[in-house]
Design a protein around this nucleic acid. Structure first.
Lengths: 302, 302
DNA sequence: CACCGCTTGCAACATTTGTTTCACAATTGC
DNA sequence: GCAATTGTGAAACAAATGTTGCAAGCGGTG
């Protein structure tokens, strides 16, 4: 809460208030957090004012009652990162939009907020730890079924660009997980699942865990069933304003993880990327948007 | 609130809890701020749990009632360094730590910025227009190869939850695109590719376009080769501080698109979701975190 | 099968909440 | 000085809150 929501408004019209209302306003200005955390009556008590006075203040600020005021302060505390003004602006725009566009905007806003949370220090530490573990592994087994498939696939895909040590545990004819048999202590199993947890994923993780294979878990909670078996657990959220949960935060995490792992490869990574390029050039995989993609292959790899 | 007050305690004894209490504990873990800001009953509602269960959780944690718990969380919110200081501190820490964490943070920041741009007005219009087109289509063909696979797959997956009109143009033995032969004017082809554009994707889009099949293109530029053939083009960025471009913005767009399309299904969507649930219940696809998932199947679908 | 302990949902409880109402006091204008 | 307006305090209200107690349900044991 960089600048408390109503601070400006209150300060401007403060002189217009009288006696008791000023006391109430002072309290709000001085204890913005308490506005959200305490009941109105309790605030009145601490401000040395009657409950009615609190209400009068709220009304003078243009609100229906005191709850809207508390909500405003509560929201400011919920996501300290984004400023109140911006939120207000977004809110404003939301109301001007149609239902579908509003929903779309809401989802974007929600996901954005969740992404911001990913850069918390502990998360970064976990990520880099996991990256190190994966980078040192002889083989990386990627496992993500159903809704978690894109995440596991993405990690495997990027890792496959820079080497051949990644194995995607997915295949037709129900043989997808068979290769986990060859995993050992020197390998790592990267497993993804979120609520409702896919039973097969848990089973495979269980199997690997019993065999002593280190597990990097990407899931939705530190108390997820995956976390129990995991050496390192990366937790993220999946909440969304829509009927379907979002896998986007997990998706970025996988991308970042992959990039970090690849980065530890140094020279081998560069060499591999060069090979990928010439390979695809030979096969004509990509449309030729220009003569030949030679320089800085890094940015061009798909 | 860097580490929420009771997080450790809850995580440690989580396995000892049972059923409903776990749900309550999950909520507390996932929404620490709401613990302080909302009434217990409201939290119970959001956690999908009886108020009594919240109380039982509090008792199991060694508290007299639930208010002490809320107080603990409230205090944690009162004191913490202001977000500004915290940001500065995080920044500081980032520089002290390895370059890997800095890179991770940079990627997150970059993607976050790109996501914010997605809620621009025109984007939203394009999205909803595309959603309407897809919703009205008899059949939706999803096409995304190589790096674009997760995006096409995700759209197809979500659409498959709520109906059977989506077809993923991907298969083994190089037969992935064969089914596009059956597409006509009443269908829609959803195609994804970004630089460097996959030749095969362009070819298939070309084929469909010539047959009069409307095309919704998700790509990285309004002048991408895809855009030329498209009825509606949704453009996004793929830039990333790392060697590998990010597919995350495209991924959210696909998720949102899917949700919007599903939303236009109304009753059929709800019915389909119920079916998905009972189907998976019969097969035991998901781990049973509780006796039986009855109410509000919507949130539980994976 | 009956029994057990344990968990879960429900309805009821006394408080506390935000709000309304109204009488009284203070202030203002004439 | 008096009337009118405004500000204040206290009591009363319905609604919502945290909490309690109990009955029904569950799975396992003898």
């Amino acid at each position: 809460m960089e600048t408390p929501p109503l601070a400006d408004v209150i300060i401007n019209s403060f002189d217009g208030y009288s006696g008791e209302v000023r006391k109430a306003a002072r309290f709000v200005l001085d204890n913005p957090r308490d506005v959200a955390l305490l009941s109105m009556r309790e605030q009145a008590r601490r401000a040395g004012v009657q409950p009615s006075t609190m209400l009068r203040l709220a009304r003078q600020l243009g609100f229906e009652g005191y709850d809207p005021v508390r909500d405003a302060y509560a929201n400011a505390m919920r996501n300290p990162a984004t400023s109140f003004e911006r939120k207000a602006r977004d809110q404003q725009r939301l109301q001007n939009l149609g239902g579908n566009q509003a929903l779309a905007a809401k989802i974007v806003a929600s996901v954005t907020r969740q992404l911001e949370a990913l850069s918390a220090a502990e998360q970064l530490v976990r990520l880099t730890d996991a990256a190190t573990l994966l980078a040192r592994a002889r083989r990386v087994y990627c496992l993500g079924l159903r809704a978690s498939h894109p995440i596991a696939w993405q990690l495997n895909y990027i890792l496959s660009l820079v080497g051949d040590k990644s194995v995607l545990l997915d295949d037709i004819a129900n043989t997808g997980s068979d290769r986990i048999r060859f995993a050992g202590k020197d390998d790592v199993l990267f497993a993804v699942t979120v609520m409702p947890y896919t039973q097969l994923t848990l089973d495979i993780v269980d199997y690997a865990h019993k065999k002593g294979v280190p597990v990097v878990a990407l899931t939705d909670s530190p108390v997820s069933p995956l976390a129990k078996r995991a050496t390192i657990t990366i937790a993220t959220t999946t909440e969304s304003p829509s009927f379907y949960h979002t896998m986007t935060p997990a998706f970025v995490l996988a991308e970042i993880l992959a990039v970090l792992v690849a980065g530890q490869g140094e020279n081998e990574t560069l060499e591999a990327l060069r090979q990928v390029d010439s390979y695809h050039a030979s096969l004509g995989t990509h449309a030729a948007t220009r003569p030949h993609p030679i320089a800085t292959p890094s940015k061009e790899v798909q």
